[in-house]
């Protein structure tokens, strides 16, 4: 139990996926322009990330390892994630159009979100147990969402700021992310697994 709580704490604050590990930078830069989108994206990421960790972990442990096919990891994982996302999207679109509007539209974006792929790969590499892997997936996605939402808040304010012409857009966003990452350094070393 303690280990699970540690995983949660660590992957939200200490080893934040975006700010310390550099996963999911593209959506972090792309979708953090507006709070509304950021929140929707966050929800979708949390959902898909936990699902993806779950499925890939099972697949890896019960299919690839027994067959000695670990080297197919990349191909299978990307395929699984892509299909999974597609599946969720089509299902959601039909079953709950409202939920789709709020959440589903972000799903395709997740396919190429390297945070999802990373979470699947890392769950295997860190040799997490099943429950740990799922918790890890959830924690990592919450960490991603946290960074995304904070960034969206800041960018809405930066929108009104008189940022120097050459730094406008991504440059200033990156610097902001840097300072944010700097602030998260305060949690460094807190809890270890």
């Amino acid at each position: 139990m303690e280990r699970l709580l540690s995983i949660i704490f660590i992957y939200i604050l200490v080893e934040n996926f975006v700010l310390q590990r550099f996963f999911g930078i593209c959506p972090f830069l792309g979708v953090s322009r507006k709070m509304e989108t950021a929140v929707g994206m966050s929800m979708a990421v949390i959902f898909v990330m936990s699902m993806a960790t779950l499925v890939t972990w099972l697949l890896y442990t019960f299919v690839l390892i027994p067959l000695n096919l670990e080297y197919l990891q990349i191909v299978t994982f990307i395929l699984v994630i892509a299909s999974l996302v597609q599946l969720v999207e089509t299902t959601l679109r039909k079953i709950s159009p409202t939920l789709y509007q709020g959440l589903g539209i972000f799903l395709p974006l997740i396919t190429t979100n390297c945070a999802i792929m990373a979470v699947a790969l890392l769950a295997v590499r860190e040799e997490f147990a099943f429950i740990e892997a799922v918790v890890f997936g959830i924690a990592a996605s919450i960490g991603f969402s946290l960074a995304l939402v904070i960034m969206a808040g800041i960018r809405e304010r930066l929108e009104l700021a008189d940022v120097p012409e050459v730094l406008k857009g991504s440059a200033v966003t990156l610097i902001t992310a840097g300072i944010l990452s700097l602030a998260f350094q305060g949690f460094r070393g807190m809890l270890t697994l």
């Binding site: 120097p164 730094l167 440059a171 610097i175 840097g178 300072i179």
Partner: peptide
């Protein structure tokens, strides 16, 4: 360290622009 990566890239991007 990680913060430096963001800041360096941000500044570099500014220079590039």
């Amino acid at each position: 360290q990680p913060p430096g990566a963001f800041i360096a890239l941000g500044l570099l991007l500014g220079f590039a622009n």
